[in-house]
């Protein structure tokens, strides 16, 4: 994979030994499977409405966790600030959603 074998490259390779395509392909397969389950739940008429909603939300949450952790490298070290920023934004976003729904439906 790495053509030059200088000392720094070797140590870099050693430190980031797990960084192969493998875990990303696994994450990809998981994403696809979760997506298929979500679409299948909606497309099949046999699942009732409330249960479909629950399936959809669970699949979306799992999928987002997988994508943030693996593809956006959040499980890697040194990502505390990114996590704070993104979840800070998500918290405000969530508050906006709850506020808008309450405002409209109240």
């Amino acid at each position: 994979m790495v053509s030059e074998h200088s000392a720094s490259d070797q140590s870099a390779k050693h430190r980031h030994r797990q960084e192969g395509p493998g875990k990303h392909i696994v994450a990809f397969i998981f994403s696809i499977v979760l997506t298929l389950i979500a679409f299948a739940a909606v497309m099949s008429s046999e699942v009732n409405k409330t249960f479909t909603y629950i399936i959809l939300i669970v699949m979306a949450v799992l999928q987002v966790i997988i994508q943030l952790a693996y593809w956006m490298h959040m499980k890697d070290r040194g990502h505390l600030m990114p996590i704070i920023f993104l979840f800070g934004g998500a918290l405000i976003a969530f508050t906006c959603i709850v506020m808008a729904l309450y405002w409209v439906w109240w």
Binding site: L86, G88, G89, I92, A93, C96
Partner: peptide, 25 residues
Amino acid sequence: VLGFWLFLGGESVLFGTLFATFLAL
């Protein structure tokens, strides 16, 4: 890289408000 994460925090607020509007309407 750090500044970009800050930007993404702002982006999630942007999309959050759009989702809120959509869900409400």
